[in-house]
Nucleic acid binder design. Structure first.
Length: 418
RNA sequence: GGUGGGGUGGCCGAGUGGCUAAUGGCAGCAGACUGUAAAUCUGCCGGGCUAUGCCCUACGUAGGUUCGAAUCCUACCCCCACCA
């Protein structure tokens, strides 16, 4: 088996690394950590990148530590932020940290000789005395050094509070803490974390005269330059309650051709040969989206399990496969986004605009009307341009379903109760 | 503490008494073309309505002048630059 660094690198997960990192990581298993910021209570697809780094580490024999920033979250990371963030309430940070920890759990194995561990830096940061911090950590850094960091430099115009300015030292302290107490020799993260991570490397070098390492993954954007991780419905979350497995699958299925290859490497564990097969199939007939289908199934299976991936794939095919496919609406209703209406409400022949708002396809009636005028909505796959359109029992499919659609891809199944 | 500049829609940025729900760009949504792709072209892009029109909310905050204010005045808050 090849070295861990080589693997990461082949998978497109290395943007930058400290000198010597490659040699150390290829030489043998290490213990490494990745920090997750509890500013939100859920993980989204963007977080999957560092998660994959930890997963690959574990697969190659290393010991992963997932750290949730219950302590650093109280300070606020200025990296990548153009302006000072409002401080989160202490209780919110704690609640978010706990929520993240549960979600991270499913990507790592907590058994075996290299069992993963979860830590929360609040456990040591919350009771760190200020005087000790200033003397033991702050003394090792010059303000000049800190001002060189991109996270600070970019804020010299707009301003940065002392609190956020100090952030990098706190994260550096974390790394040092894990280095000395848990033998952690590597910290990974997104490329926006480079400055913070190398501050930690620096601290360890000065306090311990030892070499620790940093490896950061590239920040993802789509090939056409759009933000990664957004779909029509907004952020793509890993939590099925926020983004259903079907929506999650669709997100990956809609990947641009140019991204599919890169993402297969980054977000799946498929061996190179299988990726090559999928790509060859795709090149042969791009319209079938073989690369995207493989990608979507694999990532959905990883995050939500194989059964959910199968269901999502079936639903996707049924909805987009064309009129010739025999559709079981009841099964679709189980996986797709759906809205409910009572039979009495339908018999009253409600205005389509109201139903569209009710189904969440339009945020207001004005928007629904404008959309209808622009022929942006469909009922049972028929484009609808009449603003005054009303729904009736005549629109029902298989007795109790109406398939509503906004644009090309946003379906909501309207289910009639009773 | 002083002096000067500035705070406009998700972001950037025009506007300096009525023609302004506010030019333009970006982002977003939709249509056409396609392959549930990209690129391109077109439309939409605060909300509500009994709707070729009407009403509400909005230009840092609070008041004021005026028939009428994002635009003028006052106070306050915040940001930036220079000086101390």
């Amino acid at each position: 088996m090849s070295g861990f660094f080589e693997q990461l690198s082949r998978r497109g997960l290395v943007q930058d690394a400290t000198p010597g990192a490659a040699e150390r990581l290829n030489a043998g298993p290490v213990t490494a950590y990745v920090g997750f910021d509890p500013t939100a209570s859920a993980l989204h697809v963007g977080n999957l990148v560092p998660v994959m780094c930890l997963a690959w580490l574990q697969r190659s024999g290393g010991t992963p530590i997932a750290l949730v920033g219950g302590g650093t979250g109280l300070v606020g990371d200025p990296s990548g932020k153009r302006a000072e963030r409002p401080m989160l309430a202490v209780e919110d940070v704690a609640a978010n940290a706990e929520a993240l920890a549960t979600q991270l759990g499913r990507f790592l194995s907590f058994e075996g000789s290299n069992a993963a561990r979860m830590v929360n830096n609040a456990d040591w940061l919350a009771r760190l005395p200020l005087m000790e911090f200033l003397r033991e950590t702050g003394k090792h850094f010059t303000v000049n050094y800190m001002l060189q960091k991109e996270s600070v430099k970019s804020r010299m115009e707009t301003g940065i509070s002392f609190t956020e300015f100090s952030y990098m030292l706190v994260q550096a302290y974390d790394y040092w803490h894990l280095f000395t107490t848990a033998g952690v020799e590597l910290q990974m993260g997104g490329s926006d974390q480079w400055g913070n991570i190398t501050a930690g490397v620096e601290l360890i070098a000065r306090k311990e005269q030892k070499q620790a390492h940093a490896v950061v993954a590239p920040l993802l954007v789509t090939a056409s330059g759009h933000k990664f991780g957004k779909s029509e419905a907004g952020n793509v979350w890993l939590d099925p309650a926020r983004t259903s497995p079907y929506q999650f699958y669709q997100f990956w299925l809609n990947a641009e051709d140019q991204d599919a290859e890169r993402w297969l490497r980054i977000f799946t564990f498929l061996p190179e040969e299988q990726i090559a097969v999928a790509l060859a199939e795709h090149a042969n007939d791009p319209g079938r989206r073989a690369a995207q289908r493989t990608l979507a199934w694999e990532v959905t299976a990883l995050v939500h399990g194989e059964d959910e991936a199968d269901r999502a794939a079936r639903t996707s095919l049924a909805v987009f496969g064309g009129a010739d496919i025999e559709t079981d609406y009841a099964e679709l209703a189980g996986t797709m986004p759906n809205a409910r209406l009572s039979r009495e409400e339908l018999q009253a022949e409600p205005a389509l605009v109201d139903v569209l708002v009710h189904a969440g396809l339009a945020s207001s009636k004005s928007e629904a009307r404008r959309g209808l005028q622009g022929r942006g909505f469909s009922v049972n796959d028929q484009q609808e341009g009449d603003v005054a359109r009303r729904l009736s029992v005549a629109d029902l499919r298989q007795e109790r379903f109406v398939l509503l659609r906004k644009g090309k891809k946003n379906y909501v199944m309207l289910v009639i109760d009773g």
